[in-house]
């Protein structure tokens, strides 16, 4: 009887182990239907899948709200907003970029900001620090997984850096991004 029990347990453990081994390593895929409209000199509509096939960058995103609530740090992957703008004619130094969302939220960026300049950056003690290199991206992955709706996915503006502890004010981290428009000035 004891041998029988031992045998069953061994089979179960082996089966579980095999299941574990057979599970494919995590691969971030996103079947959601979502379009991103780019408007400049020309207009282009990218599906989520098309956006994910573009060259991407990765970095740390560590945001803070206007009242001091920290969110992160997390690792984000996405496409540089500057690359997306280039697809519809680029932007001049005086132009503005309107990034808007499904819920009616709008944030306006200047040319320097699109290059990652001019943002307030803080350390963990909320002391202002010189800004390290920052990049503004249209993110589709957070910590290797798709960005869920509650977190602002499938597409969210994130300001990333290569320093895990650099905090950036996050009012401009537009959730549910569906349109990026260059306004000529």
């Amino acid at each position: 009887m004891q041998i029988h029990t031992f045998f069953i347990c061994a089979v179960l453990i082996a089966a579980l182990s095999i299941c574990g081994c057979m599970s494919a390593p995590f691969e971030s895929t996103d079947d959601r239907i979502w379009n991103l409209t780019l408007i400049g000199d020309t207009e282009e509509v990218l599906t989520l899948q098309e956006l994910r096939s573009l060259p991407s960058v990765e970095g740390y995103g560590y945001g803070i709200s206007t009242v001091g609530i920290k969110v992160g740090p997390n690792t984000y992957r996405g496409v540089l907003i500057s690359d997306l703008i280039e697809r519809v004619g680029g932007m001049g130094q005086n132009d503005l970029v309107y990034i808007s969302a499904d819920d009616g939220y709008l944030w306006v960026f200047g040319a320097d900001q699109i290059k990652g300049e001019g943002f307030m950056t803080l350390n963990e003690d909320l002391k202002e620090i010189p800004s390290p290199g920052l990049s503004v991206i249209c993110a589709y992955e957070r910590d290797g997984e798709i960005i869920d709706e509650e977190w602002g996915g499938p597409l969210r503006v994130i300001i990333i850096s290569n320093q895990e502890n650099t905090i950036v004010e996050a009012s401009s981290w537009v959730k549910w991004v569906d349109s990026i428009e260059v306004k000529r000035r």
């Binding site: 009242v67 001091g68 307030m120 909320l126 002391k127 202002e128 004010e169 009012s171």
Partner: peptide
């Protein structure tokens, strides 16, 4: 600054 707490920190730091 985006909010009061950052303004207070800047005031405190002499910025």
């Amino acid at each position: 600054r985006s909010g009061s707490i950052y303004l207070l920190a800047l005031l405190d730091a002499g910025g």
